[in-house]
Design a protein around this nucleic acid. Structure first.
Lengths: 130, 130
DNA sequence: TAAGTGTATTATATCACTTAATACACTTAG
DNA sequence: CTAAGTGTATTAAGTGATATAATACACTTA
């Protein structure tokens, strides 16, 4: 496992997806799960880039998307910090969940599965896990 | 609605995704849902390309992927036909469902939702529909 | 024989992604 | 004040996936 730890987060980048999206999703996941405290500073663009062995511009792109979603606040000369507003975290978390659900149901529907089918499948899946 | 009907299937192509994937998924969906009978002929590469106003090579790419999954059989000089083997359709259908479920649960988990949360969300979603 | 099939090839163009190299404005520790 | 470390912007280049275009060939059927 080519796993890299930086700033209390775990990264395992691959080429199946844009790098900036993977960085974005990993940081976002850490915030959503509360693995990073509100208000906490995350690694600088350059530090993150060096740790992950990718270009600073690529990290920037991920960081800018985080800020657009108001999950982070950037202070010029200081760094990038997780928002202190728990409401914003909750808001984004539910928005992303909504998107995931919608896409999932769309895919299942295009395969001809009904809502009942889906519930049944997920139940079986849940029971299987220990 | 830039909707195009061809060979008993509906197509609404956009630029959010590769064209060949959209064609592939639409045909596959029609097969999975049983909207096209087993053994039936689907439009020729050229006919489909002309109807959708895209390049024949792009249609070919979609058709070849369908054949790799054994959802279709191609007969040189005759055309492309849906498989007559219902088992193969069922197999692919469940494989794709499995993939969709796995990806969905992964995304929800990265957002910090438990299996119980997910069940609750889907239930609410289902009740909301009609 | 002609028209319609799938298939292959070569070339070109575009776009997203990534890297690289700088440069600038700002903040803070010394 | 200075130096180091922040975020940010710009320009250039390379790569790969996607899509189009133009042909060509083998096969099947009316």
């Amino acid at each position: 496992m080519n796993e890299i730890r930086v700033g209390g987060m775990r990264f395992a980048l691959d080429l199946s997806q844009p790098l900036y999206e993977q960085v974005l999703e990993q940081v976002r996941s850490s915030i959503a799960k509360g693995e990073i405290a509100l208000g906490e500073k995350i690694p600088s663009v350059r530090e993150m880039a060096q740790a992950l062995k990718i270009n600073p511009n690529t990290v920037m792109r991920a960081y800018q998307e985080l800020e657009r979603d108001q999950l982070t606040e950037t202070r010029r000369g200081q760094g990038t910090f997780i928002t202190t507003d728990a409401g914003k975290v909750s808001h984004i978390r539910h928005r992303l969940a909504e998107e995931a659900v919608t896409e999932f149901l769309g895919r299942m529907n295009s395969l001809g599965f009904t809502a009942a089918d889906i519930a049944s499948i997920l139940k079986a899946k849940g029971d299987g896990a220990k």
